[in-house]
Amino acid sequence: MNARMSRSYRWLAPAAAVVAALLLWQLVTAGGLFRPDQFPTMVDTLLALGKAVATPAYWISIGSTVQAWFLGMVIASVLAITIGSALAFNDFAFRSAASVIEIFKAIPAIAILPLVILVLGSTLPMKVFLISFGVFWPLVIQVIYGVRSMDPVVLDTARALGVRGVRRFVVVTIPSASPYIATGLRIASASALILAVVSELVGGAAGIGRNILQAQNGGMTAYPVMYAYLLTAGLLGIVLTGAFFLLERNVMHWHESQRNIRSNAEGALK
């Protein structure tokens, strides 16, 4: 098989799977297995989505969700990377903090939602706080493990070359821990989106989640709209995951795992 053909085949299977799922959806809903107030048909939903896409409200809601996702991710990453590295370098601090981190990590972020709403209201800061809180703990653990598992030769080299302080942190510590950090960020990105939608759905802040809730309250006729927004949340998830995938492929191109992926792909094309 030549390279061109295998390239086009690569897209064929996932595309066929999506079409099959959509057809199955249409089949079970139009076939009467579900009533329209339980599950609207695929065609109705896509029509509703088409109509929503043409309205500014649709894009504003996506904008609000993405904004909260982004701010939450940035705050959690900056805090996790600085605090995590500081803890990783200090054995005493690490052992003292480890149990506290484990406890906080075990608290579902949703559980503090009522408290956060009470304090901050249905606002952007509420969403950002919830996302940062939920994402910080698993991320900080990744950072600590990444920094602690640094090859001693890498550190010795930095010391021998006279690379110190902030420079050492930026050009040696972070890149060396980056495989762990990248994995942490990829997982964090998915949970950050979930937390954003939940905070809108339950907490009533503007965004995709609130539009889902409003459509649900709008009665049976608005059900296709609700499903259109659900679909939107799913698509947004795919886009963010894809963006992280591309980012990782570019930023981490030097890492062994990425090099192996490349050389395996080359081998497969032959």
Binding site: D151, V154, T157, A160
Partner: peptide, 29 residues
Amino acid sequence: LGLVFQDYGRSLYPWFTNAKNVGLPLAAR
């Protein structure tokens, strides 16, 4: 003091080009 390690595979930083690897101690100075 200049130091060349036994295991160059681990001592050269894979995230840097050769130029950046060699220039690193100069940048630090």
